[in-house]
Amino acid sequence: MSLSFFLGFLYTQWFITPPPQTQSYEGQTIIVTGANVGLGLEAARMLVKLGAEKVIIAVRSIEKGEDAKRDIEKTTGKKGVVEVWQLDLGSYKSVEEFAERASKLGRLDVLLENAGIGTQNYKLAEDNESTITVNVVSTYLLGLLLLPTLKASARKYNKKTYLTIVSSEVHFMTQVPYLRNTSRPVFDILNDKSTANMPDRYNVSKLLEVFSSRQMVKEYMSDPDYPVITNFLTPGLCHSQLMREMALLGVIMKYLMGARTTEVGARTLVHATHAGEESHGKYLSDCAVREPAPLVLSEQGQKLQEKVWSELKEKLEKIHPGILKNF
């Protein structure tokens, strides 16, 4: 992490407050993953307040999802808007079942992919270390499976729809030397328990999201008339459940670095779902288009980006044959 990035990060945390969101979502149907706590919960609440007709909160635990639903209804005074659907990103079958159910919606304006994990513990989920399965593979599996539904809604309602992925500025904080200048597949390296750098794993997963979204748009979605806008964002450091494994250290770090409230952080999530065509394929920070990390923009980064996306495409096609036709 460079000194200039760190100082810039502290400046935005302490002196920049993302603006309240006032965009109307009247009539829209929105899916928010990981919406029973933290940023996802606050984003779902905000979308209900802004007039969405249906907000589906996708959660691993239906019980916790129902608690979140009651909380949103209590604070907004709006009932009949929130629906709770089960989704476990650690299971490809669960992702496919969720997408099959969502494909039957009469309308889908936004897929806001907020769910993710940050863990120091190595554990397999499906065919990868769990952080990579949840934050990368399943995230793009769900996005691509629902692209036809998003495209159909865009055509039907004559408006562009959104595939928004919650990434992070921590992709600036990893240089992944072990992924560069090697012929070994990226996912094989990350799945090697003997060399896994778990303290850096969350950062790496967010870098892979940046690579994947950028290359996906470049290869398949670069036509100005493409009906779905896809972007990726950082909410900044916020009070949430993400650092719960770090306990007291996480609390201290959040205090020293000026962690935003979940409501303020959620403003960046909601902004991205109406950020306009200028945000297509772009990285958003503080509700504005920003440049991603220097590594991403470098020649070496571009090669790694192409490699990551090529491997991810192969994985997705193996999980769900024909998925690439959804573009």
Rank of each mutant, 00 (worst) to 15 (best):
T131H: 12
V84S: 12
L50C: 01
L111T: 01
K104D: 07
Q241D: 15
F6V: 12
V210Y: 10
I117Y: 11
T182R: 04
V110T: 02
A58N: 07
V186D: 03
L269F: 00
L3A: 14
Y226M: 12
Y226R: 11
N191H: 08
Q215K: 12
L179S: 08
C238T: 13
L3M: 13
E311R: 04
S2N: 07
M246W: 13
V270T: 06
W309M: 02
R180G: 00
I57G: 08
K160E: 06
L207W: 03
V270Y: 04
W309D: 02
Q300C: 02
E278W: 07
K49H: 06
F187A: 01
A154H: 05
A288K: 15
V82E: 03
N158Q: 13
E100M: 04
I56T: 05
V170K: 06
D67V: 13
E129T: 08
D225S: 14
P235T: 14
L316G: 05
L142G: 01
A272C: 11
V82G: 01
M257R: 12
G276E: 05
Y283Q: 06
F327E: 07
V217I: 13
L89G: 01
K325G: 11
R290K: 15
V296R: 04
A154K: 04
K93W: 00
A44S: 10
Q120T: 14
F15G: 00
L324V: 04
L179H: 02
H171I: 08
G77T: 01
